[in-house]
Amino acid sequence: MTTPLHVLIHGGGIGGLTLATALARRGHTVEVVEARHELDALGVGIIQPSNALHAMDEIGVLDDCLRAGFEWEVLTIADPTGATLAEIPQPRMGDTPSNNGIPRPALARVLGAAATAAGATIRFSATITELTDDGAGVDVTLSDGSSGRWDLVVGFDGIGSPLRSRLYGDRYTPQYTGFANWRVTVPRLPEVRGVVMGVAGQEAKALLTPITDELMYLGAVFAEAEDFRPDPERALEQLRERLAAFSGPVAQALASVTDPAGVVYSRISQVTVEEAWHVGRVVLAGDAAHASTPHLAQGAAMAVEDAVVLAHALDAQADVPGALKAWEERRRPRAMWVQALSRAVLKQEMGGATTPEEDELLEVGIPGAAHVLVKPY
């Protein structure tokens, strides 16, 4: 496609800002609308596996990510006391590192700065309120009263995507898996130089993930009732109760936490848009189209892959509809494979029943999946 496009991206998260940077660097006019009033990402830290770092290299921010985070190469499996059971080297995609842990706010700053430097505009406290696609373009009205016409509208607006609801009604609402993620940021222990996965049978698993030289986060997944929410005053105590089987570095990490407000709790839900991810010139990407459980650490990686592959498709195809069709044909099999294996790993680790199809996926396992996902996206 040789004619520059006018592109509206609904959502200023990891995928949306990656796409904004990729497209603006190619000369397209890009505007990002974000419901929040600033790029202050929620949560603690995030793992960028090698395929995600490859996408960061494509948009020119790999070095910024590595400077802001903590690069690591080996996954360590440990028993409840912290004694090492196995050390598993992680594969690389090309010349990019195996993994990088990074605080979510730091990644938001890196990507926001890159998008702005490339020429994209980021508009805060705004969402889409009206949208009309006439086949040749999309007329959009925003919540701040402004309006415009766009060649392409992309929904990178997360698992609760308002744009998905606009396109498909309530057919694809998030489905709670029955499990939730507990996380808290703590000082990095010197011995934690990569992800340390502590396992206590099928009852509990705890991850220690370095995100800077000074910081790491402790994460743990447990079965939780759908209506459960931690008591704001007892969240830390409740997390300690769930991790009582662990001593060693997990207990040491917990002992360093004094404020229950630092405990971040999030239910693990999943979304699969079974129909086409694009309707006319409006397309969903990332968690809006295919949210997965976190068990392969690939949710954000799938979003940034979606972004750079969409930019490639717009380069290669003669028109927007052709580009969206080619993009989805390339992305859907990989994203659905990640989603299916992630869910199978969750069920296996928590002692749930698995289907024959999931058992076949589980033969690949987490180490095998890492090798699959360093192949070209």
Results as ranks from 00 to 15, higher is better:
Gly69Phe: 02
Pro333Lys: 02
Ala303Thr: 00
Glu305Met: 10
Leu236Lys: 08
Ala225Tyr: 10
Asn51Arg: 00
Ala297Gly: 11
Gly365Gln: 08
Gly365Ile: 12
Thr129Phe: 15
Pro91Asn: 14
Glu363Asn: 13
Thr81Ser: 09
Gly219Trp: 15
Val196Lys: 03
Thr132Ile: 15
Asp306Asn: 02
Ala180Asp: 07
Asp170Phe: 06
Pro89Trp: 11
Ala251Cys: 12
Val186Cys: 05
Pro89Phe: 06
Gly169Ile: 03
Asp315Tyr: 13
Ala86Asp: 11
Thr355Ala: 07
His10Met: 06
Met56Leu: 05
Gly368Ser: 03
Ala307Leu: 07
Met93Phe: 14
Glu329Asp: 13
Asp319Met: 10
Ser247Leu: 07
Ala316Trp: 15
Glu226Cys: 09
Val257Thr: 04
Glu34Ser: 01
Leu239Ile: 14
His10Ile: 01
Trp277Gln: 14
Asp319Trp: 07
Ala126Arg: 13
Glu233Thr: 09
Asp231Tyr: 11
Ala344Glu: 08
Asn100Met: 14
Ala41Phe: 14
Val221Thr: 06
Val374Cys: 04
Leu17Ile: 01
Ala220Asp: 02
Asn99Gln: 10
Lys205Thr: 12
Pro162Ser: 04
Ala335Trp: 01
Leu189Gln: 09
Ala318Ser: 15
Val279Ala: 10
Ile211Trp: 09
Ala289Pro: 03
Asp157Cys: 04
